[in-house]
Amino acid sequence: MHEQAVTENLLEIVLRHAARESADRVTDCYIVVDQLTSIVDDSVQFYWDLVSAGTLAAGARLHFDRRPATVLCQACRHTFALGREIGPCPHCGSERLQIESAGDFRLESIGIVVVDPEAAPP
């Protein structure tokens, strides 16, 4: 449900950077999402198409780079990727585990089109 608020924030950031680069169009948005961040990609894209309409980012494609969270075994210090279910350490079988994740949710980069690069400020 909070995807709408998220999408409005995303648009503000995209348009600000597009203006700075004198872009005529934004074609792509590359987003980094931690595995434990509760964001539904399709829902963001749905709201994006609505909120970006009429802006120079209209129709831009959103790309979600899901970063897996890792699990650190407290017993043997083995590190492994967090699966869909939290299970014991595959190395030593311990259940003394700690999940490590950065909680990242950021706009990494955007793809832009500049029609007349000569007109752009240096």
Binding site: V6, I13, V14, T27, I31, R106, L107, V113, P117
Partner: peptide, 17 residues
Amino acid sequence: MTTRRVAVGEPILGAND
């Protein structure tokens, strides 16, 4: 016309933060 990729690196909920 040129196309390019521009680095941003901003938290999406930065304004709220």
